[in-house]
Design a binder for these strands. Sequence first.
DNA 1: CTGCACTATGAATCGCTAA
DNA 2: GTTAGCGATTCATAGTGCA
Lengths: 317, 317
Amino acid sequence: MKEILTIKEASEWASGYIGKNGSAQIMRLELEDYYNKILTLREKKIKTEIILGDCKDELKKIADNSIDLIVTSPPYADRRKNTYGGITPDKYVDWFLPRSKEMLRVLKPDGTFVLNIKEKAENGERSTYVMELILALRKQGWLWTEEFIWHKKNSYPGKWSNRFRDAWERLLQFNKTKKFNMYQDAVKVPIGDWANDRLKNLSETDKIRDNAKNGSGFGKNISNWLGKDTVYPDNVLYLSTECNNKNHSAAFPDALPEWFIKLFTKEGDTVLDPFAGSGTTLRVAKKMARNSIGIEILPEYVGLAKFQINEKQLNLF
Amino acid sequence: MKEILTIKEASEWASGYIGKNGSAQIMRLELEDYYNKILTLREKKIKTEIILGDCKDELKKIADNSIDLIVTSPPYADRRKNTYGGITPDKYVDWFLPRSKEMLRVLKPDGTFVLNIKEKAENGERSTYVMELILALRKQGWLWTEEFIWHKKNSYPGKWSNRFRDAWERLLQFNKTKKFNMYQDAVKVPIGDWANDRLKNLSETDKIRDNAKNGSGFGKNISNWLGKDTVYPDNVLYLSTECNNKNHSAAFPDALPEWFIKLFTKEGDTVLDPFAGSGTTLRVAKKMARNSIGIEILPEYVGLAKFQINEKQLNLF
DNA sequence: CTGCACTATGAATCGCTAA
DNA sequence: GTTAGCGATTCATAGTGCA
């Protein structure tokens, strides 16, 4: 296979390779999508930027009303000082507010801010700092539009004398105005069992493995083309935690930022992650042909993020 | 079949009826359980009481430290008038606190309070009254131990211009002290199929994780895992919205109070539902051989609840 | 191309003990 | 009293290699 084929060539190639079991059609559509992404990246000159520093300072260098979507998973509050972040629960809101103030400034009026967070249980009680944060953010001028739930398919095992294991996290949606962009059709899902049966008839391994090998989008959205009978999802995302990273434990699985990027942006828009970590959001944004800016305070993570973004770029081209 | 058989008679009857496919044993055990329930109800004289009135007043007639579990789904705040309850969001906390104060008084020190609630979206935003309520309840002396999620299994798809269907509700757990009764074994669930293969042949990694003290590991105390067929659940309840009662909508499914009654009480304990509605909690409590007290302000619901409780009683005897 | 066996690991919490 | 450290406890899923 040549490095770059026309869509027609690739489609023919796929037909020959896969056979006549219906997978060729999938392959064709996926290829089309794939090439569109490449063209978008080249023509629109998608930029992916990772900045070393504290977002409190670095955000100030970003222009007003320039960001379409902020997706982030900040360090959770933690009592122990050695841990990453190391902000105590009682000081968390004070620590967060100056940063969210800048986020409010850089976000476009029709943009969205998605915050992934979960309070810990400590000394028999759940901390209340997340709740206090929501109330404080509203005072700061944010609208608290929705709370999505990430129901973790495979959560960490655990059982204690007074509680079971925690299998969910919050995904808080904030907006600047009531009129924000929401591309609901982009996240439609196949309807129940009907689609499951159809999908089973296809090669399970191909679907999964093509996806896993390069992460470039192949096989990722089988449901999008197959399910012509698709329905809108709800506000619970039932996803697995990922266990693929060698160098860094992923803050959240790719599917999480992917879902919100689909829902709240279109190609060529700009995504911001002020707590970029290993750069999951940036990598996913780039894959989806969105501009992205990441800020991360720890140099080792910045390096890792740069590596990840470029590694995936090789796969894409 | 006679109205009351000995367990032996019933067992023989079941054997003959079912055949020799192993179901007889199950039937025998279920019958045993069934008769134990009847005996418990008779010997311990389980009481089921439904009171007409506002729980603000009626709770005052209940003795201090006499309730093992409070499970309730109060009327949610709503701006529309003439609806059930009809408390506006901004007045909700003030409305709730005098009632929860009485609940705190009547609850035993080792008892639990489970509150089913979910804020509505209004004017494009989620209300914050639930959050304010949690903070206020803590000030009142409650410990906020945990937040369970009811993930609604079969919520039908739906969408609005700026949000998707709400498929989850909060189940807030509050306690009076850190040492509360929790019968975790009562809610264990069957283990996944993966276990059969896994446990037959423990992998090298599992053994290594046992030895290496790298924090937390799966393989620790392997003997605990042998012969295991049930595991502890997590803090997400993935249940359908099925509603048994045809005459009343929007009550929670039986499985919800049932799960918490199992988890936080034993037979002969006392369950309270200060917003009893159509009496789901009372009916389930009675079925499970727990005393119960319900308070309901609307006469038509009190009538409905009485009917339901008695209807099910006929089935039981 | 399918199915099976096997590997790897994920934002955890509490109670006890020692300082 | 107060805090820090450490041990004990607990499942489910995705990814990989090979027959």
